[in-house]
Structures are given as C-alpha cells and as structure tokens.
Design a protein around this nucleic acid. Structure first.
Length: 871
DNA sequence: CTAGGGTTAG
C-alpha cells in the first residue's frame, strides 16, 4: 500500500515537474494520510492540497492530469502571466541564458565558498571514494534497494543526465551523503548555468530530497530523516545571482525560504509523531530504553534532525544578497531588505532561531539602498546605519554583562563572539546611497559622513581610500546633473577639494606609526575627481582636468606614492573628446597630445612613472576626431586606427587587452558623420598632414570606401585579432550607407541588404540596428521585407526585437532589445539625410533652451526639459 | 561563517 502511494507521489511529482510552474511539496497530515500540495507560482503563500488518492486517480488518467493541473494553475495566475510564460518549455540553453551567463562570467566557485565547511572534506572523500553503487540508504538496512549507479557523482556526465538520474532514482535509494553533499554539488552546478532551465533542475533536486524525506519517514524509522538547510540555501543563492536580471527571482527566493520554514515545522511534527508511534508499537523492543532518543548512538544526527532546515543568519543573508541585487530594479527590494532585518530579529526572539542580524546583514541592506536609484535612498540608508550604530552600542553592553569583560574593538579575534559593528564599508554604502539622490543637501550629507569617518576615534571605523572615492563620486554625479554650468563647475570643484582632503589626510597619517590607519595611497580618488571635472561639461573643464593631471605628474615628494595611471590620462583625454563636438575646438589635437605623452611615459627611466597607453586611449582620441567638425576627421580617425593596429601587431599592449569592435566602429561613426558632399569636395585636396606614401594612398580614398574596407576587415578579422562586429558596428555601418548612397539607388538596397543579413547571421539585430535600418531603407515595403514581419505588423508598432526569430537576436544584450518608439518612420523622410536631421533637431532644441547651449550634456538637457531640478 | 564598498572607450 505504501509502495503504491510512493509511486503515485513520484508520478505526481513528475507530472507537476513537467508543468514547470508549480512548486510541489508533500506532507503527512495528523492522521497519517499523505497529501500532496503545490503552490501556484504567483501566490506562493497559497497552498493547494489534495489527498494522495486524488493524484492516484489522475495519474492513471495520464494526459488528462496535465489538463487538470493547468486549469488549477490558471485560476491562480491572473496576476502575472508573463512570469509563467517565461518559464514554460524552454530549450536547454536559451539565448537569454547565453546572455545571462556572459554577463556574470566572473561568478565562480569561491562565491559559493561561504557555505562550504572544511569539515566536509572528509565526508566528500568517504562519499566519493565509496562504492559507486548504492551500498547504504538512509536507514542502513536497505538490502532490497536496487543497485542503481549513482551517475550524479560523475562530473564528466552531462548535467542534464546527472540531474535526471538523481531526480528519478527510486524512492528510498538515496545515500545519506547524496542528500548532504551530492545534491548540493548538483544544485551548485545547476545554479551556475545561470538559466531558467538550470533553476528548474535545482528546484527539482530540492523537491526530490523532500520527497525522499517523506518516503523514508513514512516507515517510522529512526532517526528521523531531514533535509538540511544547505540545499535550500544553494537554491536561494542561485536565484540571488539572477536577481539583477530576472524580475521574479527574488520572489523565488522567498518561496524557497517559505518552504524551508514549513519543512522545518513539518520535521518537528514528524519527529514527534514517530516518537509516539515507536513508543506505542514497540515499547519492549529495546529492553534498556524505551526512548529512541536514548538508543540512538548518533546523537549528533538527532540534534541535526531537530534543527533540520531551520533558517539561519546565513540563509537570510542569502536572501538579502538577492534583494540587494534586485534593488537595482526598484527601491521596493531595498525596503523589503530592511524589513527582513526585523523579521530576522523577530524569529530570533520568538523562535530562538540563529537569525540575529550580523554586520553582514546590515551591510547588505545598506548596499541595497546604495544600488537603487531613488531620492529617498540616502536618508533611508542613513537611518539603517544609525540603527546599526545603536545596535552596536546595545550589544557592547550586553557583551559586557554576559562575559564580564569589554568587547575588544581593536583585535576582533580576542572576542568570544562577534557583535554587530558598523565599519567603513557600512558608511561608504550610505555615502553611495546619497549619491543617487537629487534632493538638495544629499551631497553635503555624504560629505558629513566622510568627515565623521575622518574624525572617528573608533578603531573599527577608519577612513580609507574607498570612502574618499565614493564621496567624490557623489559630487561627480552632481556635477553631471546640475542645470547651470556654474553649479556644475562648483560641484566639480568640491569633488577636487575632497581629493585634496584625501591627500592631506594621507600625509597626516604617513608619520603616524600607530598602525591603526587603513588609509592607503590610491589613484582611484584622483581619477574620480578628474571624472567629476570632465563630467561638469563646461568650457573650462578639459583645461581643469589637464591642469590637475599635470599637478600630480609634476609633484616630486618621494614619500608620496600616488602617480597618474592610464585611466587618469584617458579621463583627461575624454574631457577633450567631449569638447570636440563644438566647432573650432582643438579638442582632438589636445587629446592626441596626451596620447603622445602617454607613449613617451611608457619609456620613462623611472619604472614607477611608466604609464602605458591602452586600446581605450586610442579609441578616445579617435572618437574626439570622429565627433569633431573637422573636414579631415575620417582621415585622422583612419590614421589612428592604422596606428593602433600596428601597435597591436607589435604586441605593444598588455596581453589581456583584447581589441574589440569599438575602434572599428568609431571609424564607421566618423564616416557616417561626414557629409557626403563635403567629402566629395575634399577628396581632391592635398594631404595636409605630411604622412607617408602608403598612408597617403589610404587617405585619398573616399570615406565610403574606407568604411567598407574597415567593415570587411572587421567582418573577416583580417588582422587576426579575434574581432567580430557587434550590433553597434552593424548599426554604424547602416548609418554609413544611409548617408553615402542615394536613397533610391540599387547600391543602397544591395548594401543595406548585405549588412543586415550579416547582422542577422551574427545574432546582433538590436534596437540600434533596427533604428539605423529604418533610416537606411528607401521605403517601408523594403524594410518590412527585410525584417520579414508578419502582415499587419510594422516597425512603428514594434516594442522589442524579441519579435524576430531568436536566431537573429541571439547575442543582443537585454538593454538593447527594447525598441525606442519613433513616430516618424517614413512620413517625413524623403530627401533629408538622417544625420542632418538629427543634428538640426538638436540645434533647435538647444536654441529653444536657455543655458549654455553648446556644452550641455544630453542628460542635462533632458532633465532640464523635465524641470527636474532648479537650484 | 571576512563579506559588503571605488575609476576610463563606440
């Protein structure tokens, strides 16, 4: 009878698993009748429970069951259909998955390390070296268990098969170490896929463990089997890693936590039931003892059963970690993170769980506020910080009364346990949070926190370079956002002042040998200050950045170990590039002067003063020319590209510096910006730059041909750099065609067709490509034919590039999938060239507006338009 | 459960 129930459970589980959207759990109720429950996704707190007989009936019905399930499911999913949709029947690895993985490549084993205990090493050895066949089940008396090969141990097998074998292994056949270790290893690897499919596997494994537990405990054996907290925690952790990209990932984490809590409660119940059961049915079995607890040799096992999957600090910290990632989408997650802190507190107080928030818990909440862009984030974060400080003081008191000694803030290792301690990192997160606020006074509050750090005599709270850099960044953001050039410059100057404050503190502490100070010499605050000035976008800013750079280059204190690096130079060069859009600007030359300076610095006698240019340095200068209004911009950019490729050929760049499509794209951009007619006139002009013969040949090429040559160099990777055009490149090339061919020419159609096909093949059809394609196509019919849109569909009604076949958009990053709506598609466009038009529009907009019409950065313009800030 | 926080290009 039990076997029937068990197999029907398994069947039900499989069916539900196929549905992919239900989270199954099973439990025995008080009367011992088994029922199976599931949670419809959008409402995890709703538990739908059927007695096992229901499942038995429906399993025989086969296909019908799925139907029944879907209907039940549908009832619950009115809220969020997209959520479910995204989870249903995906191929093993989807394009999005591919993208997800690409984005977070840095994520590997050591991040999981936090859960790993050294003590498990021995277990592992025992486990892995043990017979590859099942020798021992949970109860150790499983002679009738079939000898199934434990494929999931074999790291060489495909993950899919390993998971399948694990999940579908017969109930009762799992080795206890399969549960404690094998499952965790599998879940980890599933989580590493960073895919929905992987997450489904992970959840399946977890389900399977719970299923095993139910099955084993149904036999009233002792000790009671439990599923430990770690598998749950790893599933949560895997979701946490998806929180930045996947809107509902944090919801999934909460579900797992809910189930954990419920399972923990169930385990307690089960234990009591079995105890009662055993003392009733076999009171005389063991003549010595009636109480199985006392007969059990392995008391740790029993202890373990008591705790089972009870959430711990680290469980909640995992949740917080996810929420802090999710906070980038909305402040709501950060607020929720803050609420989790009090939940942890409450669970600790009321249930005696080990969930008292620790330093890391608070940090994660602060970090959540630092990441979310919201005006109130700074103040909320500061409140949490103040709570934390208060908490700290309370805990110090409590520690003193508990141990009759003071908590040692100096040497943490001397303490008997850790207490919540605010530190630089906590402060720095709050400073960051203020940086996202446009409320007046936010930056000042950030600065106040910095000075609190500087003057702190608490050994646990000491300023470091991070704190300075972050405060500078707050002003840097302000410098980029303010409407008037004066206030932008003012903010930039405040940023610079903080850099000097850093220098001052650094020198002050240099003689100090107390060893207390964390303050290291770092170039980062300096670069942050440079960036702030560059971002202020005034007429003076490039000059100011350069001046500051030279101050540091020329300083000559042998005790002072901060010297500009490549980023410093690049930032100043970028400031010049930003200024280059204006007519008669000398920005490009000034940027190039710095590039030359970089090249000579690379050969400096003093090794500490050697600074090398990198690919980015070239790109910045090239871009300065590209955006300038010089008539020779294409030639200049081409010259620099050639130079860059030459340096690359001679391996002058660091090995880890790979050349991507960016430099090539800049050239295309230059060509697209160059007006066709102007260049027809210029074509005959003599080369004014006295370059060599070979170079002259190239320079005399017309820009359109240069663009095509560059395009194919990129496409066929003729320089052997591993370069592939990406969607920026394809879009830029389409722009080139739009500007340099006649609207109704055959050339236009052929070239557009060709480039678009390349983009499709490369899986790079992004919103940028679509927009450029729209401008390049002679008419709507041609466009629709290229895009193969179904009848009735049009580009103007299109919202994302996801409507295309997956193949075309395989490698498009998510932020370039959304198509920006443009009302004018073909109506207004007959004669004018796309770039002229957008230029005109820009000028008009500037003309209508008041302030500093040349220098306003785009963001400022938009903000000014919305009247978001008036100071 | 020592992690949690900082800088440049199309």
């Amino acid at each position: 009878m039990k076997a029937v129930a068990a197999s029907s459970e398994l069947g039900a589980r499989r069916i539900i698993s196929r549905q992919q959207s239900l989270f199954l759990s099973k439990r025995c109720n008080a009367t011992g009748e088994t029922s199976i429950s599931f949670r419809p996704r959008p409402y995890p707190s709703t538990l739908v429970t059927y007695p096992v007989s229901h499942w038995q009936r429906n399993i025989t019905a086969g296909f019908h069951t799925c139907r029944v399930l879907s209907e039940t499911e549908n009832k619950f999913r009115n809220g969020d259909p997209s959520e479910l949709q995204s989870n249903i029947s995906r191929p093993l690895i989807t394009a999005e998955d591919e993208q997800l993985r690409k984005e977070d490549d840095d994520d590997d084993d050591d991040r999981y390390g936090r859960f790993d205990d050294d003590e498990n090493d021995d277990l592992w050895k025992e486990y892995y070296n043990s017979d590859q066949h099942v020798t021992k089940s949970w109860n150790d008396d499983s002679s009738d268990v079939s000898l199934t090969k434990r494929l999931w141990l074999d790291p060489k097998s495909p993950l899919k098969e390993r998971v399948n074998r694990f999940v579908n292994s017969p109930l009762g056949s799992l080795h206890h170490l399969d549960i404690k270790i094998g499952s965790i290893d599998l879940i980890k690897q599933c989580g590493k896929l960073h895919s929905f499919q992987g997450m489904k596997y992970a959840q399946d494994i977890l389900d399977r463990l719970i299923e095993e537990k139910r099955h084993v405990n149904a036999n009233n054996t002792w000790p009671v089997m439990v599923v430990p907290d770690r598998p749950f925690q790893y599933v949560m952790y895997s979701w946490a890693n998806l929180c930045r990209r996947v809107p509902f990932a944090s919801q999934r984490m909460r579900e797992v936590l809910d189930i954990m809590i419920q399972e923990n409660a169930d385990d307690k119940e089960t234990k009591e039931r079995i105890l009662k059961e055993r003392s009733k049915s076999a009171p005389d079995d063991d003549t010595d003892n009636q109480n199985p607890i006392l007969t059990s040799e392995d008391t740790t096992e029993d202890l373990f059963a008591d705790i089972s999957c009870q959430p711990t600090v680290s469980t909640y910290n995992t949740l917080l970690q996810g929420l802090s990632q999710a906070a980038m989408r909305s402040i709501q997650s950060a607020i929720e993170a803050e609420e989790v802190l009090s939940v942890m507190e409450k669970m600790h107080r009321n249930r005696g769980w080990h969930t008292k928030p620790n330093t890391r818990s608070y940090s994660l909440v602060l970090n959540a506020y630092a990441k979310c862009r919201h005006d109130s984030a700074g103040e909320r974060a500061e409140k949490v910080l103040r709570d934390m400080i208060q908490r700290h003081e309370q805990d110090i008191e409590a520690y003193r009364t508990e141990y009759q000694e003071d908590y040692d803030l100096q040497t943490m290792d001397n303490n008997r346990r850790r207490i919540v301690t605010p530190d630089v990192v906590a402060y720095t997160s709050v400073i960051q949070a203020y940086g996202n606020s446009q409320k007046p006074g936010s930056a000042e509050k950030a600065l106040a926190l910095l000075s609190e750090l500087i003057h702190s005599d608490n050994p646990a709270v000491q300023v470091d370079a991070f704190a300075f850099a972050n405060t500078i960044n707050v002003y840097s953001k302000m410098a980029a956002k303010k409407a008037s050039p004066e206030s932008r410059n003012q903010a930039a100057m405040r940023a610079e002042k903080i850099w000097w404050l850093y220098v001052e503190e650094l020198e002050k502490r240099m003689g100090d040998e107390s060893g207390q100070s964390n303050l290291e010499a770092s170039i980062v605050p300096f670069n942050a200050a440079l960036k702030a000035i560059a971002a202020s976008f005034t007429k003076q800013s490039p000059h100011q950045t350069e001046e500051l750079l030279f101050k540091l280059l020329e300083q000559n204190n042998p005790n002072f170990h901060i010297y500009p690096d490549t980023i410093s130079f690049n930032t100043v060069m970028q400031a010049w590039a930003n200024a280059s859009k204006v007519e008669t600007s000398t920005g490009p030359e000034r940027a190039e002067d710095l590039l030359k300076l970089l090249k000579t610095s690379a050969l400096d006698d003093d090794p500490s003063r050697r600074v090398h240019p990198n690919v980015q340095s070239y790109v910045i200068v090239m871009n300065a020319y590209a955006v300038s209004r010089r008539t020779d911009s294409v030639a200049q950019v081409h010259r620099l590209l050639t130079e860059l490729l030459g340096e690359a050929r001679e391996r002058l760049f660091k090995e880890d510096e790979i050349i991507n499509a960016v430099p090539f794209t800049v050239l295309l951009k230059a060509v697209a910006k160059s007006n066709k007619k102007e260049n027809d006139n210029e074509a005959a002009a003599e080369d004014p730059f006295g370059v060599g013969m070979d170079e002259r040949d190239k320079l005399s090429m017309d820009p359109y041909s240069v663009a095509f040559q560059t395009y194919s160099e990129m496409k066929f990777d003729v320089h052997g750099l591993g370069v592939q055009p990406d969607h920026f490149a394809f879009a830029a090339m389409l722009d080139v065609i739009a500007v340099h061919t006649d609207m109704d020419s055959v050339e236009r159609r052929q070239r557009v067709n060709e480039v678009f096909e390349d983009a499709c093949q490369a899986g790079q059809v992004s919103s940028l490509v679509v927009r450029s394609l729209q401008s390049a196509c002679p008419n709507e019919a041609f466009l629709n034919e290229l895009l193969q849109l179904p009848r009735g569909e049009s580009v103007t009604s299109m919202e994302t590039v996801n409507v295309f076949q997956r193949q075309w958009t395989r490698f498009v990053p998510p932020q370039f999938r959304r198509v920006t709506k443009r009302k004018d598609s073909f109506l207004a466009k007959t004669s004018s060239k796309p770039f002229q038009r957008s230029k005109d529009r820009g000028e008009n907009r500037n003309g209508n507006k008041h302030i500093d019409n040349e220098r306003m950065p785009r963001k400022v313009k938009q903000a000014a338009k919305n009247k978001d800030f008036i100071f």
